[in-house]
Design a protein around this nucleic acid. Structure first.
Lengths: 207, 207
DNA sequence: AATATATAACTGACCAGTCAGTTATTTTCA
DNA sequence: TGAAAATAACTGACTGGTCAGTTATATATT
């Protein structure tokens, strides 16, 4: 019956889980976890719904798989940043801010944090997992950096968690405003980075 | 049939919509908009499901009504803050930070922003409405304050939006961490406020 | 009596997850 | 080599449960 459009499927099961997770991320981001239909995800992965269930036991398992996959690279990247930066803490903070600004500007990358936050009320362990693996790690990395700066006489001796909030907070709220509330960007990333570092390092008050 | 347990209903209906919205806020916050059942909301308001539909046309209307009701006091409060503070901008910034810290620590108050963010992907106009009425207003208020400080020679002349992000970002990320990801508070609100103002005003770098 | 308020039973659409059957790919062995 | 057998990948129709919204009926208020 089918005209000659090539084979309907190939032996490529090894690649399937990743393809399905890609599709899941897109659909979850677009509609939210609850509203997303497994059939939509299947369609986006060019499969039937039944095939999705060959690779994942449930819609929830799809969510878990996705988050685990997306978390891995972040966690390792963070640790690397902190360790690399102890020699020149000011430059390292600069690097963190500019790297994170660029990452968070990217919708594809911000999609997972966004998704985690949206499912957190229902899936407490996912929330806890993300907090430990990403948020706490990030705070830890910044803390290491800050303490190194204090030891080197570069940074003032303030609560490290407060410093972490002053670094990540502005980046995060900007990302939420842009990606979730749909706000326009008024300043370019470069200008935002410069302004952020300026206020963070020099303070707001005239001296 | 019913034994003498008093009348089955006797209230003036005038109070109902507000009671239902209170119940809706509680249930939406607990389960999220999609998962929340109208029957749960009805039960929380001590009504039958049918009765809810006497006051609201749909579940979605319940959401809209709720958000509108919760937004009103915030918007007016913000404008007041900015205008009141032009005489002593430093004190006004201090006041904003300590007020907002306390407000955002309160789960009942953070519930609406949280809800808005969670439904934003599905209900774009709600997101846009909230952005205009709350986020943009807040930025505007801080901007007014900052410009006043610059004019008075107290604050450095930096991009006002960056200043707004440095004020609201750390507060917001802390609230998300606590209320959404379920993190413990490590420092008291007072200590957080002090540290925040210290870094914001004086900067991180030793001079 | 007439109206406003409320209930409980009901309907219809929707969708996660299942499964019997189909199609492609690989292996076996003549 | 090439046809048959075995296996892996996949499909789509179906089921069972859930829930937003409706309706027929009952109770309170004026």
């Amino acid at each position: 019956m089918r005209p000659a459009l090539g084979p309907k499927f190939r032996r490529r099961a090894g690649a399937r889980p990743d393809e399905i997770l890609d599709a899941a991320l897109a659909v979850f981001t677009d509609k939210g976890f609850e509203v997303a239909r497994v059939e939509d995800i299947a369609a986006a992965a060019k499969l039937s719904k039944g095939a999705v269930y060959l690779y994942f036991d449930s819609k929830e398992e799809l969510l878990r798989g996705l988050i685990e996959r997306e978390i891995a690279p972040i966690a390792s990247r963070l640790a690397a940043l902190a360790n690399a930066g102890t020699a020149d803490p000011k430059a390292a903070v600069r690097l963190i801010i500019s790297t994170a600004t660029q990452l968070l500007d990217n919708p594809r990358i911000f999609a997972t944090p966004r998704l985690v936050l949206s499912v957190a009320p229902r899936f407490k362990e996912i929330a806890a997992f993300y907090r430990r693996r990403v948020v706490d790690e990030a705070i830890g990395a910044i803390s290491v950096l800050h303490r190194a700066g204090v030891a080197g006489g570069v940074f003032r001796d303030i609560d490290s968690e407060a410093v972490a909030r002053m670094i990540m907070g502005p980046l995060f709220i900007q990302a939420m405003r842009k990606h979730v509330l749909g706000a326009e960007e008024t300043a370019s990333p470069e200008r935002r980075i410069d302004a952020h570092i300026d206020i963070l390092f020099e303070g707001l008050v005239v001296r």
